[in-house]
Structures are given as structure tokens and as C-alpha cells.
Computed example of a mutant assay.
Amino acid sequence: MSAPFLPEGDWIRGISIKQPWTAAILTGAKTIENRPRPWRPGWVLVHASQQIDRPALRLPLVARSIRDRDLVTGAVVGIARITDCHQDPEGAPLCSPWAHPGAWHLKLADVQELPLPVPARGQLGPWRPTEDLIDQVLQQLPVFRP
């Protein structure tokens, strides 16, 4: 993809998520990501962190969603768009079976899995990807237009 098609400025961030949650997002089953603080809407590189949440592998909701998937770690594995960020009112039903009480819920849409993971280091909170990393991701998504 050539630069003229990209928006100017700070248009994309990285979000690091432990496996198996990342795999569940890539399947399209998990459309809510839980965070301790609010995030702004926009595009994010979906980064599978180095750690695997082993107890989560035994949750039926997770197990059904990620069946037979590789749990890649330490790489950008997809791209998604945050369309909303909210907290459910105390005592109200949760917005999704994936939502945690008291957390900020990031609504994920337009999730696209990369054909090949791109090794990268992430960090806690929203992080700014390098231009080289963005280029490597977008080479695998030739029809993507933010």
C-alpha cells in the first residue's frame, strides 16, 4: 500500500492482548475487549502478547471459540476498529458474555486476521506502532483502506 492512501497523523495504535483472548477476537466470537481505562475509537493493530492466560483455556466460551487454533504470541496477528468504549451501569446486565463487570468495554469491529503473524513487541496500554511495523501489516492487507 502506498502512503497517499493512509490518513495523516496518528491514525492507528497497538493493543496487546493475552492469548487465548486474541484468538477468540480473530474468530469473530469475542467482540468486546476489557480494559481498566477507556480507549478512544479508531483502528488498532491486534498484538498477541508474550503471555498466555492458561486458566482461560479451560473456559467453555473460550474453548468453543478457539478450537484447533494456534496461539501465536509476540506478534501482530490482525487489525480491528474500536467503535465504542463504555462501562455497563452497576447492576445492569453485561453487554456481552465476554464483558467483565467494572471494566471498560471496547467494542471491536472490522476484525481482519493477518495471513502471517508479524513479530513485534507490545506494551501495556495503547502503544504507537512504528511505520515499518504498519507497512509490514498493510502489505498483507492489500485492499484495506482505513
Rank of each mutant, 00 (worst) to 15 (best):
F5C: 11
F5E: 12
L6Y: 09
P7D: 07
E8W: 04
G9S: 07
D10I: 02
I12T: 09
I12L: 11
G14W: 06
G14P: 09
I15R: 06
S16G: 04
I17R: 06
K18E: 07
K18A: 10
Q19H: 13
W21C: 02
W21A: 07
T22G: 11
I25N: 04
I25V: 15
L26Y: 11
L26F: 08
L26A: 09
A29R: 12
A29P: 05
K30M: 08
I32C: 11
P36Q: 10
P36I: 10
R37I: 06
R37V: 10
P38A: 05
P38Y: 03
P41Y: 04
P41T: 11
G42T: 08
G42Q: 12
G42M: 09
W43K: 08
W43C: 10
W43S: 07
V46L: 13
V46Y: 03
H47R: 05
H47K: 07
H47V: 08
A48P: 08
S49T: 14
S49L: 11
Q50C: 09
Q51R: 14
R54Q: 14
P55M: 05
L57H: 06
L57D: 03
L57Y: 04
R58G: 13
R58H: 15
L59P: 13
L59D: 15
P60K: 03
L61G: 05
V62M: 09
A63T: 15
R64N: 15
R64K: 15
S65E: 13
S65V: 08
I66R: 03
I66H: 00
D68I: 06
R69I: 00
R69A: 05
D70F: 02
D70Q: 04
V72M: 01
V72R: 00
T73A: 00
G74C: 02
G74S: 02
A75Q: 00
A75D: 02
V76R: 01
G78P: 02
G78N: 00
I79M: 03
A80W: 06
A80C: 11
Q87L: 10
Q87R: 15
Q87W: 10
P89W: 12
P89G: 12
P89C: 14
E90Y: 12
E90R: 13
E90G: 13
E90M: 12
G91V: 12
A92S: 14
P93H: 08
P93N: 10
C95K: 05
C95D: 01
C95Q: 00
S96N: 05
W98C: 01
P101A: 13
W104H: 12
H105E: 07
H105M: 06
H105L: 09
L106Q: 06
A109F: 02
V111G: 05
V111E: 07
V111M: 07
Q112H: 06
E113S: 15
L114S: 00
L114E: 04
L114M: 02
P115G: 01
P115H: 02
L116Q: 15
L116M: 13
P117M: 01
V118F: 11
P119I: 12
P119D: 13
P119L: 11
R121P: 09
G122H: 01
Q123M: 15
G125L: 06
G125S: 05
W127Q: 07
P129L: 05
T130I: 06
E131T: 12
D132V: 10
I134T: 14
I134R: 15
D135P: 10
Q136D: 10
Q136N: 02
V137P: 11
Q139A: 13
Q139M: 08
Q140F: 09
L141H: 08
L141N: 09
P142F: 01
V143D: 15
F144N: 02
F144K: 07
F144A: 07
R145V: 07
